[in-house]
């Protein structure tokens, strides 16, 4: 009966994914490739960009789970760790190429994610969050006492197998572009729409025929796979892996930070968030011990004062979207109104 007030709730949203947008994106990507291939960039710059690419990948994937499908995980580091150890074990123990290491890491990650999904998907919300963390801690504890991976002493990647930064840069760039494209395409498919519907209202989504389990599984597997690939590249560059660094909660800290700062539930948010994170992290390395304190404080302030993050707030204020995706606050608003209407 109050339909007129419903319609006036929000202005139309401009979507910036026309030709101009795509051309800009393509130009940036091609330029980044060209800079990498020609070796025009100094090594140090490439190292930063390498890190940024990996964090964009991981942040975007964490965002896919939490921001778009409502599965907030605090344990994705388990896949970083598994991939890191795979690279070390394959290159050092079995003297194979690092490609083999990354491949094995990816395969194990997918299998592990499949097994976990049967347990984890029975939960939601905070149960899911803490259960993922528990799993990661359990694996970490196991690796610390597992002789095969040298217990708590950690392992190294066979040095002859560590590629030069130029190649690592290109691999990370490719992974990052793939990650963003996959997420973008996934969210445009029926599965993706179903997933966002599920996040907003699981019961309603399943009642209109969205196969929750399958959609969630697909999303979860993609996320775990990409995080494992990023983790593999990270430790390939680092050269050594320890249980504490491989399975450390710090991975989740950075993913959460990137998504919160950039804007949860936006495709472009984690890209911006990762850039901010890597620059800030670099800056904070001059103040040893303070980095997590400051990152944590910034994240809390952002949650309180800019709950939609930088991109989310900009999009709301200016009524535009980069990489069109429906923002969930709009959905929620509609739903609340419906609830209220039903209640009254």
């Amino acid at each position: 009966m109050e339909t007129k007030s419903l319609a006036s709730a929000h202005k139309p949203i401009k979507v910036l994914d026309g030709l101009v947008m795509w051309i800009v994106c393509a130009v940036v990507v091609v330029a980044l490739y060209a800079l990498g291939v020609t070796g025009a960039l100094p090594n140090n710059t490439m190292r930063y960009l390498f890190k940024i690419f990996l964090y964009i990948t991981m942040g975007s994937m964490w965002n896919l789970m939490s921001g778009f499908t409502g599965m907030t995980s605090l344990g994705q580091q388990v896949f970083v760790g598994i991939a890191g150890y795979s690279v070390a074990v394959m290159t050092t123990t079995y003297k194979m190429s690092f490609w083999m290491g990354i491949l094995v890491g990816a395969v194990i990650a997918i299998i592990f994610a499949l097994i976990l999904s049967f347990v984890l998907f029975r939960m939601s919300g905070m149960y899911f969050a803490v259960a993922t963390w528990l799993v990661s801690e359990a694996v970490s504890t196991w690796f610390t006492s597992w002789k095969y991976v040298n217990q708590g002493g950690g392992m190294t990647v066979r040095t002859t197998q560590i590629p030069r930064i130029g190649s690592l840069y290109l691999m990370a760039l490719t992974l990052c572009v793939l990650a963003v494209v996959v997420i973008f395409l996934l969210l445009r498919t029926k599965t993706g729409l179903g997933l966002t519907a599920m996040r907003d209202d699981a019961d309603a989504a399943s009642s209109v025929g969205v196969n929750l389990f399958k959609s969630k599984l697909l999303c979860y597997i993609i996320c775990c796979l990409f995080i494992a690939l990023a983790g593999g590249l990270f430790f390939l560059n680092k050269g050594s892996v320890l249980p504490s660094s491989a399975f450390g909660i710090d991975w989740t800290v950075s993913m959460v930070f990137i998504v919160i700062i950039g804007g949860i539930g936006t495709v472009s948010g984690p890209i911006l968030g990762a850039i901010v994170y890597v620059l800030l992290d670099e800056f904070l390395s001059h103040y040893p011990g303070w980095s997590n304190i400051i990152l944590g404080a910034i994240a809390i302030l952002v949650i309180i004062f800019l709950p939609d993050g930088i991109m989310g707030t900009l999009q709301k204020k200016l009524h535009f979207e980069i990489f069109s995706q429906k923002r969930f606050s709009e959905h929620k608003k509609d739903k609340k109104i419906e609830d209220a209407a039903n209640a009254a």
Partner: peptide
Amino acid sequence: GSEPALLVTFGLSIILAD
């Protein structure tokens, strides 16, 4: 929301540990 509250306590835990 409950998700932001969860993440804020997560942030607090990181801050306090360091």
